[in-house]
Structure formats: C-alpha cells, structure tokens
Design a protein around this nucleic acid. Structure first.
Length: 556
DNA sequence: TTGATGAAGTTTTTT
DNA sequence: ACTTCATCAA
C-alpha cells in the first residue's frame, strides 16, 4: 500500500496533464472528453491501479466498470490486470450494461412482482413469456425498477463500490442512464464518464443528446478534455483535425502541432465497383506479401451492409487467396467454453501434433474430475482419445465428412457429462443456451469445412484471426488498424433523413477515418452494383467534399 | 399482371 | 439515396 502522493503511473508510462489528473482524482465525479487514440482505456486502467494500490478504493470495496460490448469490457479488465496485477485486479468488476443489469435481477428477483414477477429459472429469449422469459431489452428496465423500488437493493450495490467507470459514454442510451442514476445518484461514489461526443453514432438508436452535460449536472462532475492522439500519423491527424474544426472548433488543435509527413492518406476514384474491388484486392495482396503487414492489421470499412457493398471485394479477395472475415456474418461463439471444448477435442482427434489443444482439453477434463472414479483420470481420457482417434481415422471419408466427427463429439460430451458442461459457464444454467451454442458451433464448422479442403484445415481456421476484417464503421468503433480502407464514401451511401442525421453521418465518417494508425485509403465509384443490377450514380457529386476539400496531398 | 404510390428500413449491443 | 414490401387501381 502506498500513499496517494507517491503514486506514479504503472509500468513507467507517462500520462498527459489531464489524464494524470483524472487518474488520481479522489474528491468528486469527472466527465472526461477524449478524442480518438487519446488513451482512454489506458487512463482508466491507470486510475484503477491508483485507486487500488493507494487504498483510495478501500478494501473490501470494489471498482465497477460498465461498457457496452463484451470485448470492450474484457479488454479493460485485461489492461487493469496487466497494470496492477491479478491480486488487486480481483476487486475490479468489468461488466457490460446487460451483465450488470442481469446481476441485479438475479440477486433481487423477488422484488419484481405482478406482471414483472419472474421464476428463478427464467430465461432470456426473443420474446417475453410471463414469469418464464424476458428479452434483452427488458433487462435494463427491470434492473431500474428493482433499484427504484428497493432500498435494500440500492444499498447493496452502493456498499460494494467506491468508484464507477463509464466507457464510451457518448453512446449511453436513455434506459442505461436511468440505471446509472437509480444506482448511484446522490451517493458519495466517484463516477468517471469517458467518451467523445464527436464519435456519437448511436443517436438513431436512442443515445441521448447532451449526455455529458446531463451527467456533469446530475453528478456535479468536473469536465476535463484530453487532446492528444497517440494513434494516427500526422497526415491522417490533419484530416481528423479538419473535421474537428467543423464539429467542435474548441477541440481542434493548432496546425503547427500536426506537422510532419508521416502516414499515408489517399483518395481513390474508380469508374465502377468492379475495378474498385480488383484494385483494392491487388493492393491488399501487396500490403500483406510485400510490406508484410499482418492481415489482421488491415480493415475494410463501409457505411452499411458489408455483404452487399463488400461482395465484389470479397469475391476478388477469395480469387487471390487472401483470408478475410465479414464481421457481420459471424455469430461470435469462438470465446464460448463449450465451443472451445468441442474444437479442441476434434483437433486432437484429427491432428496428432496439436499440443495447445491437447493441453487445454486435458485442463478442462481434469479440472472437475472425480479422483475416485478410475474412468475419470487423465490417463483414462488419454487412452479414450487415442482409441477414438484411431477409430475415426479408420473411416475413409473422415477428413471431409463432418458427420463422423460429430458422432464422436457427441459420445465425448456424454462421457464428459451434463453437469460438467453446465459448470463451464454461468450462462449454461440455461439448457436452451447450451443447445443453441452446440448448434451454432456445428453450423460454423459446416461452413468452414465447405470452404476449406479438409476438416483438419477447417479446425485450424476456426479461431484464426489472421484475416483482413470487413466491417461497418459502427462495428469498428473502439478498434484501430495499421491500414484502413474506407470504401464507398459516395454521398449516396451517407443518406440521412434530417438535420441531426447528417450531423451523425459526420460523426460516422469521423469514426471511420480515426481508426487508421499509418494508412488511410478512401474510395468512391461512379457505378456501384446493387441487388437488382447496375445502377448509375451521379458523377457530379463529390464524395464528402466538405471534409476532403482541403486535403492537398490526396491522389487518385 | 403491371405500374404507381407510399411507408418502412438501412447503421448495434446484450446472459 | 436507394431497396423492399404492401396496397390499390387499371
């Protein structure tokens, strides 16, 4: 334990003045505005280190961090563990809004009465069933209701935490803010909200306007700004800065601070989407093969519908054998413990040299093994796998016919036992969820087997993230890449119905261009294929002229 | 059957 | 801005 005055940022990192100030604030609430690449996650991790290491968050009380997405929430948890170690980080709870709401519902469920009453084994599904099932959109309002009606519930939450972190706060929805208020308003809990109003791209889904001002008012928070950007090279930053001038003039940075010729910025114009696709595929191939950029550091962004707007590019990439992933096709089950168990089991059956899969599999199998049961020791499981593998390989079509493997996987899971499957994750209390994940896993395997030459190859690519990522701008929020190709920036793809829609479009464009670290390529085409044939789009309209007009060094 | 007209959707996360 | 779907009139 050290005194607050003695604290220095963990791992020898330096924080700029306002980030440092935010990290060591002990008195009140903060609203921290920080642009792209300012190191918001790092600041929060350092603050967690400060609070825990100095005892400002006094044992046994904890820190709560609330994010929107699972991966954002686990990234933050991971970063905190890296900065202050697992021991202290065990008092850092990182949840999504939904996970936080579900914990409140599960803990104080009896408080819900009348039409909202729920059975203990309630499930979450596509529609509401009285007492039995709620939907995702019911979760936050039900938690709000519990907190508003029960002092016991409110106090239990408030006693647990000294500090609360709110990430990507500019996209906080109405209901979510109600939950924050119901839980923490008029308490001594220190709240820190972090975000960037220039990246507010969820207003159409109900993200509140002026949320930072409301927060600053409701929680009497001090407002701070961070202006640095450690992500993008100067050429790309100058484009971002030009947009900031239009969106929020006070946030713009003097030009002399953005001098330098590092980074690449290109605007490319094509007659049609076919030549666009061919050229981009060529260039992506050369980034990967000649420049040795890892495929996962290259992203193709578009405003909407990657499976439609990205179709010609994906076809061209396939033709060149460049691995890619359309993030919109994918049900993300790769982190599911049940999925990992199945994939690891099949991997050791098909591949004799898969030490990682073998180790993970043995770990899971032995974790809850019964020491008194001779059929439940690692030696038993090793023999079982060896025998199963031999039997599988004695079948002629085992390399391509997934059905054989499926039969053995079912047998394995039966031996492994339902209880142990259920123990793999809290979600698996719900039997429907288990069969849902089981089905998704086989669906995805089937797809991969169809695309690859063998089951062994399909298993190898199951977790493969060494791929070019194709995604919407919305999905890219919070991510960064060496090379970003922002495809199809024609005015026609940035439709909007009203004035606030165009403001949000500007934010969407800003999020897109601020994902790039080293190279940003913007493309537009005169003709773009749509489902019902080729359509001509006006050549007279200049893409996003408003922002690009100034950029002298643009080619193409 | 065809064309004309108008409304709704497009961008997302979540145990 | 453009697609898709429903509805109605010819």
């Amino acid at each position: 334990m050290i005194r607050p005055e003695e604290w220095q940022p963990a791992d020898g990192l330096k924080l700029e003045t306002n980030a440092m100030r935010a990290a060591i604030e002990q008195a009140g609430c903060l609203a921290l505005m920080a642009g792209p690449g300012a190191g918001k996650t790092e600041m929060l991790a350092q603050r967690a280190d400060f609070l825990l290491r100095t005892g400002t968050c006094r044992y046994p009380r904890r820190i709560l961090a609330i994010s929107f997405k699972v991966d954002a929430s686990s990234n933050l948890k991971e970063r905190v563990q890296r900065r202050c170690g697992k021991e202290l980080a065990s008092r850092f709870d990182s949840h999504t809004f939904h996970a936080f709401a579900k914990r409140i519902i599960d803990r104080f469920r009896p408080i819900l009465t009348g039409t909202d009453a729920l059975d203990p084994d309630y499930t979450i599904g596509g529609h509401r069933i009285d007492r039995k099932q709620i939907t995702f959109s019911d979760m936050v309002p039900l938690a709000v209701q519990i907190l508003e009606n029960s002092e016991i519930a409110r106090n239990a939450i408030r006693m647990s935490y000294t500090d609360v972190f709110l990430d990507e706060f500019q996209d906080c929805l109405d209901e979510q803010y109600k939950l924050i208020r119901a839980a923490f308003l008029k308490t001594s809990i220190r709240m820190v909200a972090v975000g960037d109003t220039n990246q507010r791209i969820m207003a159409w889904a109900g993200a509140l306007e002026g949320i930072f001002q409301s927060f600053a008012h409701d929680f009497q928070a001090t407002s701070l700004n961070i202006y640095s950007n450690f992500r993008s090279k100067p050429r790309i930053r100058r484009l971002q800065n030009e947009m900031i001038k239009a969106m929020d003039p006070k946030g713009a940075i003097p030009e002399e601070e953005l001098a330098g010729e590092e980074g690449t910025l290109e605007l490319r114009h094509y007659p049609d989407c076919q030549s666009e696709a061919e050229d981009l595929a060529d260039r992506i191939a050369s980034f990967i093969n000649e420049e040795k950029i890892p495929p996962s550091e290259i992203a193709v962004l578009m405003r909407q519908q990657p499976s439609q707007f990205g179709a010609p590019l994906m076809a061209a990439l396939t033709k060149k054998g460049i691995p890619y992933r359309n993030e919109h096709d994918l049900q993300d089950i790769t982190t599911q413990p049940l999925t990992r168990l199945i994939i690891d089991f099949l991997t050791v059956l098909h591949d004799d040299h898969a030490p990682d899969a073998w180790q993970r599999l043995m770990y899971v199998v032995s974790e809850f093994s019964d020491p008194d049961n001779p059929n439940d020791q690692s030696s038993y499981w090793q023999r079982y796998i060896a025998t199963t593998s031999r039997t599988l390989k004695s079948q002629d079509d085992y390399q391509t016919n997934l059905e054989n493997s499926r039969v053995f996987a079912i047998n394995f899971i039966e031996r492994f036992g339902n209880d142990r499957v259920r123990a793999l994750s809290p979600e698996y209390e719900n039997a429907n969820r288990i069969s849902e994940i089981w089905n998704y896993t086989w669906e995805k395997l089937n797809e991969l087997v169809a695309a690859e030459s063998s089951i062994e190859m399909a298993l190898k690519t199951f977790y493969n993230d060494q791929v070019v990522r194709i995604l919407t701008v919305h999905k890219s929020k919070g991510l960064e890449f060496h090379t970003v190709i922002f495809m199809g920036i024609e005015e026609e793809t940035f439709w909007s119905k009203n004035e606030s829609g165009s403001a949000e479009n500007r934010c969407t464009f800003f999020v897109g261009i601020s994902r790039a670290k080293e190279r940003l390529i913007l493309t537009h085409a005169d003709y773009r294929e749509r489902p019902h044939g080729v359509r001509m789009w006006s050549e007279s309209r200049n893409p996003q002229e408003e922002y690009l007009g100034y950029t002298e060094g643009l080619e193409g």
